[in-house]
């Protein structure tokens, strides 16, 4: 059992978690997108290492797909979107930042406790990283909850998908190719649809602040 790849993957996992916290605390939207791209890069590296050490051909495809989609295409679309919407403002959170980070910490602990029995069942090399993968998903969810602006929520949604992919790669060496392709396509399509929604929301309310949507509720 080669310990170097394992160490490398654990490092990648740690980086992913760090990037998630960075996204959670980051106020500038453009920087958030950069962090998202960096997360995609780390993810693809970790998948590459897994593929290299286990000689799984389809993981190389998965790695390439992640690189293409999450490091290049989606960040590009997001950046253009932000420029066209002129949405690169400081986003305000619903809760103050320290509390959010504290909640995030609790969530990470919860994720590790949760992953303990599952990762013992898994037979793969990288089963120890499942806790981090779950933590990434939950932190992304938390980010979606605490942000007011629509663009941040889109980024949160995409980051959540990163966590899922990492979980799949670490416990079962990735999902079947067809599923992975499908998910990749879904994310792309979802991105486009959300982009259109963002335009409509701005057109309707002249702002991307989602609290305006409350006026849609009937009493």
């Amino acid at each position: 059992m080669a310990s170097l790849p394992l160490e490398l993957i654990n490092t990648c996992a740690a980086l992913l978690l760090l990037l998630s916290f960075a996204m959670l605390s980051q106020r500038r939207v453009l920087t958030q997108v950069d962090l998202y791209a960096a997360q995609g890069l780390v993810l693809s590296v970790s998948i590459f290492i897994t593929a290299w050490s286990t000689h799984q051909l389809h993981l190389y495809f998965s790695c390439g797909l992640t690189l293409l989609l999450k490091v290049l295409v989606l960040p590009l679309i997001l950046r253009r979107l932000i420029h066209r919407l002129d949405a690169n403002w400081e986003t305000e959170t619903l809760l103050n930042m320290p509390s959010v980070l504290l909640i995030g910490l609790l969530l990470v602990m919860f994720a590790f406790v949760l992953a303990q029995p599952i990762s013992e069942l898994a037979t793969t090399l990288t089963h120890g990283t499942l806790g981090i993968a779950l933590a990434v998903v939950m932190l992304a969810f938390l980010m979606m909850i605490t942000r007011r602006k629509a663009v941040s929520q889109v980024v949160g949604f995409l980051a959540m998908e990163n966590g899922l992919l990492f979980a799949a790669a670490s416990t079962t060496y990735g999902m079947p190719m067809a599923v992975e392709l499908g998910v990749g396509l879904d994310v792309l399509v979802g991105m486009i649809i959300l982009g259109i929604f963002l335009f409509h929301i701005r057109e309707q309310f002249e702002s991307l602040d989602l609290s305006h949507l409350e006026s849609l509720k009937e009493d």
Binding site: L94, M138, F141, L142, M144, I145, T146, R147, R148, Q153, L210, S211, L213, E214, S215, L216, K217
Partner: peptide, 13 residues
């Protein structure tokens, strides 16, 4: 039904 997306997300979470 508060009409706030954050609240709905919180429910799912």
């Amino acid at each position: 039904q508060r009409g706030r997306i954050s609240t709905y997300l919180l429910y799912s979470f």
